[in-house]
Amino acid sequence: MATKEQGHGLPAPWTKVWSRPVGWFLDHVMYRTVVAGKSNVPAGGPVIFAANHISFLDGPVMFGASPRPMHILVKKEMFRGFLGAVLRGSGQIPVDRSGDRAALHLGKQLLDDGRCVGILPEGTRGSGAAESISNGVAWLAINSGATVIPVAILGTRQGDEHRDHIPKPRRKLHVSFGEPITVKRRKGEPGRVSMDRAAAEIREALADHVQDAIRATGQGLPQDPAPGESTPQHRHTAVAGTPADHP
């Protein structure tokens, strides 16, 4: 099944024809997802959705809740077998987490085409408090000029549930789209300084929005690490960033 447009290698627009209804089904039939802040999402133009990361389900749930279709950066290890076919067929982007500029450049092409890209910049499932994020999201934002929408996802993992836990059907989930932000390179500012500053601004916006969503919904974040797990020794902070570790 081909999912590439001729010429520039972008996922074809038709990938959303079947994947959008599947995302809606996941959010509103399999689970009871409460969505807030849709009006914060621009109706047109490039948008980067930057979400916190607590569960395997975060990407699919954000995909189904969004008022606009998106292409989510997903670790390449997920692109195998049936799941890999589904990811490719829905226009998602495989990323090598050891450092993958090609995936970021493809993301930029999508944004330049006026589309939306989703990224979970914490890089790995954790508490979801956005205490640290990769610079990949900052690179995309600065180099594309796209609007960044912080997204708070709550309920996909609760309490002391293991990071691999998949919640039972009909659980109430929450997806909240925050107020848009833009980040730009300042005149005379070195590239690395711009990248670090932009990443800090996006991290702060995301962390603040997660806390706002917690107060609004009453749904807290899970424990990190879950019992029996060790805390990751480090998180990637290279320009290539660390993409979602789930579909």
Results as ranks from 00 to 15, higher is better:
Val175Asn: 08
Ile93Ser: 01
Pro11Val: 00
Ala198Pro: 01
Ile181Trp: 02
Gln219Thr: 15
Ala85Val: 08
Pro69Cys: 07
Ala152Cys: 08
Asp27Glu: 13
Pro67Met: 08
Asn40Thr: 11
Ala130Trp: 05
Leu87Lys: 04
Ala207Trp: 02
Asn143Arg: 14
Met78Ser: 08
Gly126Asn: 11
Asp212Tyr: 05
Pro169Trp: 06
Val74Trp: 02
Arg171Phe: 04
Leu140Thr: 03
Ser39Val: 14
Gly188Ser: 02
Gly23Pro: 03
Thr147Lys: 03
Val47Ala: 08
Leu111Val: 07
Lys4Asp: 11
Ile93Lys: 02
Phe177His: 07
Ile202Phe: 00
Trp18Tyr: 14
Gly136Ser: 11
Gly7Asp: 10
Leu10Tyr: 06
Gly188Lys: 01
Thr242Ser: 09
Pro180Tyr: 10
Pro121Ala: 12
Pro69Arg: 05
Ala12Ile: 08
Pro69Leu: 09
Leu110Lys: 01
Pro247Phe: 13
Ala200Ile: 01
Arg97Cys: 09
Asn52Arg: 14
Asn40Gln: 15
Ala129Val: 10
Ser194Val: 03
Gly114Leu: 13
Asp96Asn: 15
Gly126Leu: 02
Val183Ser: 04
His246Ile: 04
Ile153Leu: 11
Thr15Gln: 12
Asp113Tyr: 06
Pro67Lys: 12
Thr231Arg: 13
Ala36Val: 14
Pro225Ala: 00
Leu104His: 05
Gly84Pro: 09
Asp245Glu: 09
Ala129Asp: 14
Asp212Leu: 12
Leu87Gly: 01
Arg20Thr: 12
His165Val: 08
Leu111Tyr: 03
Arg203Tyr: 03
Phe79Cys: 09
Leu206Phe: 07
Cys116Trp: 01
Ile93Arg: 02
Val148Asp: 03
Ser194Gly: 11
Val239Asp: 08
Thr15Phe: 06
Thr182His: 00
Ser134Ala: 15
His71Cys: 00
Ala205Ile: 03
Ser39Glu: 15
Gly228Gln: 06
Ala207Pro: 05
Ser176Thr: 10
Phe82Ala: 14
Asp224Thr: 08
Ile48Pro: 01
Thr15Gly: 05
Gly220Phe: 03
Arg80His: 11
Gly64Asp: 08
Lys4Gly: 05
Gly159Glu: 06
Asp164His: 00
Gln6Val: 12
Ala85Phe: 12
Leu83Pro: 09
Ser144His: 08
Lys172Met: 10
Gln158Asp: 00
Ala207Thr: 10
Val137Thr: 02
Met1Arg: 12
Lys184Cys: 07
Ala12Gln: 11
Ala103Thr: 04
Thr15His: 12
Phe79Gln: 11
Glu179Cys: 06
Val61Arg: 03
